[in-house]
Design a protein around this nucleic acid. Sequence first.
DNA 1: CGTGATCTTGAGGGAATTCAATGTCGGTGG
DNA 2: CCACCGACATTGAATTCCCTCAAGATCACG
Lengths: 223, 223
Amino acid sequence: VASKTSRKRATRAVSRRRRPRRISVAPLGDLFDRSGKAKLLASNNTIFKQGQAAEFIYKVLSGCIRTCSNIGNGRRPVHAFYCPGDYFGLETGESHGVRAETVTPSELLLLGRRELTTQAAGNLEVANFLLRATTNELQRIRTHNLLLLKDVTESVFEFLRDMQRRGANGNHVDLPMPRNDIADYLGLTTETVSRALTRLKKASRIAMLSQRRLILLGPGANN
Amino acid sequence: VASKTSRKRATRAVSRRRRPRRISVAPLGDLFDRSGKAKLLASNNTIFKQGQAAEFIYKVLSGCIRTCSNIGNGRRPVHAFYCPGDYFGLETGESHGVRAETVTPSELLLLGRRELTTQAAGNLEVANFLLRATTNELQRIRTHNLLLLKDVTESVFEFLRDMQRRGANGNHVDLPMPRNDIADYLGLTTETVSRALTRLKKASRIAMLSQRRLILLGPGANN
DNA sequence: CGTGATCTTGAGGGAATTCAATGTCGGTGG
DNA sequence: CCACCGACATTGAATTCCCTCAAGATCACG
């Protein structure tokens, strides 16, 4: 539950270019839906641990998942959040390099990883699915990387935009995760995230409907 | 040439676990070496620009390449450095999401990307090569991400270790890139990198042979 | 309706940035 | 061969901004 980081960034106007949408991974959705096994989990449950053998690849049906790791300095970096439709557990090696936990109650679809990777060696469809999924993951991490380099206010704002993009709700954004998780994802502290939100509020770039629900305003809100 | 960032981090002891070696991409090395076209470039030359159509995939034969992008706040994040043996230009879409430049005079091997990706749709060997290469890239970025969350001194030290690991020189490390580039890679400023090096020097964790050549000392130096 | 978890706000301190100046290195030309 | 020059690197002083510690406010849930 550690959430410690420090950061300092330049405070400047930021205008980021659009980032391409994630590539769809349609082709194998079928295979997943056919041979995948569903699983339901409550909040804050561990799906797999760091170092554990990578047995499955997961598809999020509902809820929200976070992956995180431990680095020695008492911080708990959150690597990614996965929303419905996303795949995770795509490990490069035989064991998971991160830990995966449910943020909210979540429904998952599991597919045997060994089954998949051995198939990939001989099955073109599977190989291409893995390539696309990995490519998506790559894109995701690149985006995350850029977030880490921005100044705090923009970093938080970008995060909100990303959540809006992925959430596909009405015109409001729902945050499934606590400030804590956002902070660890952005390399900040809870307090700093909170202050950033306050700043965005005062600048009329967002409006809070509740602590976990808000609306993006002004330029850059809808793209 | 902007190099501005700010950062503040917790100052604590750090002990990171070992990270797995990059997976070899042997199988297609052949294809590369056969149909690739060699190209020689001087320092600080642009190989491809951000947004440009992704025509080739590149293999570094000699020298050093950096990929970077522009975010609106006047910073120039460096995404990665590529050393001899590394592949780059593996784009997720049809156009490059980053800019690639030579750090030092470099020799490259080019392979038509369209040729490769269309082959990937039907050729299993190619599809698997792309998967492995992408997986490597993923691993690389994950490592980079963790670097960004560490405290400055450890971040710089880890960077040096990584360069040693990849450089495969004698017992010293040669840095092909200026402080400037290191700073932008780590999300810091030139001055902060310089101060971190001074700190490492005083702590006897490194020894400078020249400004661009040094030796790692003490525990954690050789792994 | 209370209780704990989550979130916000405030004050103080520390670390990195910024701005500015000095040092060092490599290469070029006299 | 040596001196100069420009690019790169280091160091210093002042400032900024985030973190830390602490208290208060809001929300969710029993």
